[in-house]
Design a protein around this nucleic acid. Structure first.
Lengths: 203, 203
DNA sequence: GCCCGGTCGTTTGGGTCCAAACAATATAGA
DNA sequence: TCTATATTGTTTGGACCCAAACGACCGGGC
């Protein structure tokens, strides 16, 4: 993992960061006093990590890839929340739940949880919040009373019809820096990551 | 977004899902009775979405990419939590915080929050949890008493020296399905997504 | 008909998550 | 020296997150 790292010194030729902070080993001779760029070169991060566990074989490509994956997911969620969801008092997860229930015209909670990639415990909480707000209803199954079925209300369907195009437009904004071929390739690679994670879970 | 979707009917030629559930418009004439594969073809999802907002121009490539991104990030976090972090009672975020403080030999809370991509409010809570467990200390700045500095304890450093190689090995497991060139390309594309999200935030 | 094993959703307990509001602190300018 | 503005971290309130435990329910086997 190479989680986004603090500012490095902008002084000419200086590669350490962040200096000027109390308590840091003083690798950097320059006091930090500028605005903070928020990105670190890979080389600097690898250097810092190697100082700690450099005697071990580390897979920097994997670390960098997973850290980028996590950051991109967070950035995407923040973007979609800020531009589309927050004004409707929705979180990413509550929107995903609404979306799944919407496109399949109702669904049982165990399947919604699976589709939304959240636990059933979480799904119970989220669906109760959405029920309280009037976006969906929860109904016990008639043939199997263990099951709870979710359906959008009229208000919920209207909300999704208005919201989903905006959400999708905001999704499209996130890939403007990529060619169509690059988008396809990234999506394929991400699926491989999911498959690898699931293989080790099941294995 | 095409969040992972529920099982579709496995009956020959049948493309609707998930049938057999109470409350669903009965598009599918087959009762569902098999184990549940957990993936839907893109075509089926697009068909379902188009039924709801098909009159609008939708960017399915963007939807699919962002949904894959979110799923991959969740799968990666679940994998790393299950295989490495949970036995040490650590969450993904608490680990990221420890890692950042570790590789930079101490850091101020505002920078740790930025590096870990979490808010300062969250960082306060997480760092207090880690302090309670003895992994790090929180110290008020001497020159600027608004600032709080985090440093790992001896136990915290020992924990990271033991844990990080295992964490990195688990990270490497996640990209076994990708060639080195594909990993590099995916990482580059993910960075583009982060940049696009940040451009619209600032703009 | 009864019992057992399994599944479902909920509850519990504790952790993370963030926006907004707040208190403490620092700094610049008059 | 005083005031105003800005920055920092914390608190508040509410939402989400999940493992584990639990109660309700279902279905198979005897």
């Amino acid at each position: 993992m190479t989680a986004a790292l603090p500012t490095y010194c902008t002084a000419e030729g200086c590669m350490w960061a962040p200096c000027g902070e109390t308590g840091l080993p003083s690798r950097c001779p320059h006091a930090y006093d500028g605005p903070m760029p928020d990105r670190h070169t890979l080389t600097e991060t690898e250097a810092a990590v190697s100082e700690h566990v450099g005697h071990l074989p580390l897979d920097f490509a994997a670390a960098h890839a997973i850290s980028s994956l996590y950051r991109a997911a967070n950035a995407a969620r923040a973007h979609l929340t800020t531009t589309v969801l927050r004004e409707h008092d929705l979180t990413w997860t509550s929107f995903v739940v609404l979306w799944v229930v919407w496109i399949w015209d109702g669904m049982e909670t165990r399947h919604v949880a699976e589709s939304a990639a959240i636990s059933k415990a979480t799904l119970t909480g989220v669906s109760k919040t959405l029920e309280q707000r009037g976006w969906l209803t929860r109904t016990t199954g008639e043939q199997d009373r263990r099951l709870v079925n979710l359906r959008l209300t009229d208000a919920g369907r209207t909300l999704m019809e208005e919201l989903y195009p905006k959400f999708n437009a905001a999704e499209a904004q996130l890939i403007t820096g990529l060619s169509p071929a690059a988008v396809t390739e990234m999506t394929t690679s991400l699926r491989r990551v999911v498959e690898a994670a699931e293989d080790t879970q099941t294995g």
